[in-house]
């Protein structure tokens, strides 16, 4: 992939393999790819994930408390999986031209 795509596209792409991922896994990957290493960048990517979940494209499977501070100490970590609706929207958007 030569050119970067909008961040939400890229997030959906990660989920298209059908596996469930923790938010910190996705956030750190995107941070690296898009050079958004700051905590502002981290929160902004996480907010994109939250928006995708409220839009019904990701399903929040389970949560745990971030004890070790891998993402944000004392906050909730979420594990998401793509939904059927998410697959449809992602296929419209992400797979075209790849």
């Amino acid at each position: 992939m030569s050119e970067k795509r909008p961040i939400k596209f890229r997030i959906l792409e990660f989920f298209l393999d059908g596996k469930a991922y923790w938010n910190y896994e996705i956030v750190s990957k995107i941070q690296e790819e898009y050079g958004m290493k700051s905590s502002y960048g981290r929160d902004s990517i996480n907010f994109d994930i939250i928006e995708l979940a409220s839009g019904g494209m990701l399903k929040d499977l389970e949560q745990k408390v971030d004890e070790s501070g891998i993402y944000k100490k004392g906050f909730l970590l979420h594990r998401y999986k793509i939904t059927d609706f998410g697959i449809t929207r992602a296929s419209d958007a992400c797979l075209r031209g790849l």
């Binding site: 050119e3 970067k4 795509r5 909008p6 596209f9 958007a93 992400c94 075209r96």
Partner: peptide, 10 residues
């Protein structure tokens, strides 16, 4: 810029 380029889907 990235969003603008995705005319068809977005």
């Amino acid at each position: 810029g990235r969003t603008l380029k995705e005319f068809h889907p977005c």
